[in-house]
Amino acid sequence: KSSWNANSVWPPKNHHSIGLNDFADKVKKATNGDLEIVVHTGGALGYKGPELLKTVRDGLVPISDMLISGVAGDEKLFQIVTLPFLVRDFQELRTLLEICRPYFDKAAEKKWKQKILYIAPWPGAGLWTKKKITTLEEMKGLKTRTYDKNGALVMDAVGATPHALPFSEVYTSLQTGLIDSVMTSTPTAVDAKFWEVLQYYQPLNITIATDMVTVNLNSFNKLPKDQQNALLKIGKEMENAMWDNVPKIDKDQEAISNKNGIVTVAPDKKLIADLEKITENIRQDWLKTAPPEGKKIYSDFMKKVKR
């Protein structure tokens, strides 16, 4: 009998935390309680996110959920999924990740001594604002909270000002007008109750973030064969279930926001096209310094989606 700690930095009701708990339950059932996974949510184990590749590699937690773009500072290849306006919807993201997967698996196992159990998306990142945004022109002058490099570059490109505030200061900053908009996805908006301080939601799918759940290779290899297979099999099941579920979660969370007074502004085709054009440099700049596998993934993906 063994008991493993598992880590999620997201709040307990976030879908990735719920997913990890489901995963733990299923594993417990499949192994007749021989492998128990204790999930710690909300960063209760003291981890913040960017360090998690190393954390799982060193076996500090045998299993952890991690935001791929969060840990991509350690592994440049992973940055491909953070490029803005590269994928337009969940379908394209899944296509991209299918191309990525063999390369990601290799990087995770060879360099980071861990095995990817499943990869699952967040709802796409949109703009949550005080005023309605329908054209590129209207994005100019926004004071937007962004959370990473590419988000900042996008806002910079459209003539808005990106502010990298810590999340704990976003709410009060919106209240006081220090910022007037936030780039994020529906679950975060619901977590932070943005309807108390914001009015509009523009679902632009600027990026669609993805999390992966990995297991320390050494811990994995020490398990009896049947438990190993159970982990992999349940990982696959989870992946499918999460991909099926997330579009629904996105809609549900959006509905919660709407019910509380946020108005969804369906994005104009022209706005999206303009945004794709204006952010082309961001993607090209990344490609210039990307590892060869990254370039290969990019061109394979472009071929596949015929762009």
Binding site: S69, G70, G73, D74, D148, A152, L153
Partner: peptide
């Protein structure tokens, strides 16, 4: 060793 970079603009 891993040339760890921040995921912010400054990298």
């Amino acid at each position: 060793v891993n040339e760890t970079q921040s995921m912010q603009l400054s990298e």
